[in-house]
Simulated scan of single mutants.
Amino acid sequence: MKKNWLIVSGSILLSLTILYLITFNVMPPLDRRQPGSFTNFYLVIFTLPVLVAPILEEIRFRGFLTNNKVLQSLFLLLTPLGLIITGWNTLVFFLMVMLYCLFFIYKRYSQDWILDLLLIVSSLYFSIHHLPSQANLTRSWLPFLAISFSLGLILSWIIINKSIWWAMLFHGAWNLLGGIIFLLALQFVSEELHIVDGDGYKIEWKRVPFLKSNEGSFSPEGNELQITNMNLQDILGIVNPSLLDSFAISEPFMKYEIKLESEGGYDVLKANLIEALESDSLLLRK
């Protein structure tokens, strides 16, 4: 067993961070990226993170730890390719250059302390990669940065002592656990009825358990709009697709039942709907 400081420090940091998040009920800052429609929920939350991401990310961030020349070549290829696909980020570019330099220095000199530094930079690169592009390294993001950093250390230990395939399995299981927790949070929701009286309109809304039904409806009739079992991403897509670039959704993938009564025609009805959702902080202007 080698590099046990990875599993020890990674496990301690992960445990302390999770304890902190639970104790103080800390939630991540709002991600300004738009989530997909609930029709691709399982693809975004389960299929890609559990089956695809573990393979690509283990090769991209820790492929240098294997003796397989094909995987090492893919590591060298996927790292800059990922930067090109996801868009320019100065910090990510700097970490990528550091990672490359340390990798080639280690290949040349095989010093153990260089490998330790390489493992730390790799885990930091892995953690920065998992932050939204709009995020900055403020205190509110640090706990979530610590989780992915500690996970990077643990996955490095698994590769060194087992194999990259075991790391892929562990990575997939971790993402599966996260997906299940997220699904449970969408399923077991408060169904309290919220009522908002605005200028010329009245809206009633409540959350709907995610697994209640896969059928949603958007039904305007005269001065009334009835929405059942739909998330806000799909609602905005119907009301005005251009609004998707103007608003962020505070509860991604959450489904709602909404009843709106408004004075005026359909255009006024839609405008009042957006105003009402924004007044209750379900929609947030970017």
Rank of each mutant, 00 (worst) to 15 (best):
F144G: 15
L145V: 02
A146H: 00
I147S: 04
S150Y: 00
S150M: 03
L151P: 09
G152D: 10
L153A: 01
W157R: 15
I158W: 02
N161M: 08
K162S: 00
K162E: 11
I164C: 01
I164R: 03
W165Y: 12
W166A: 08
M168G: 08
L169Q: 03
N175K: 07
L176F: 04
L177W: 06
G178M: 04
I180G: 10
I181E: 00
I181C: 01
L184V: 13
L186S: 03
F188I: 12
V189G: 05
V189F: 02
E192M: 12
L193E: 13
I195L: 15
D197H: 00
G198N: 08
D199H: 06
Y201S: 07
I203Q: 14
I203M: 15
R207N: 10
R207K: 14
P209M: 14
F210Q: 15
L211T: 04
K212W: 08
E215L: 02
S217T: 07
S217F: 00
F218E: 14
F218Q: 11
S219I: 15
S219P: 06
G222Q: 06
N223M: 03
N223V: 05
E224L: 09
E224Y: 13
E224I: 10
L225Y: 07
M230G: 03
L232W: 01
Q233G: 10
Q233E: 11
D234G: 06
I235N: 13
G237D: 05
V239W: 02
N240G: 02
S242G: 04
S242V: 02
S242E: 05
S246G: 05
S246L: 05
I249T: 07
F253Q: 14
E257Y: 01
E257P: 08
I258C: 11
I258A: 11
L260W: 08
S262C: 12
Y266E: 15
V268Q: 14
K270L: 11
A276P: 13
L277S: 10
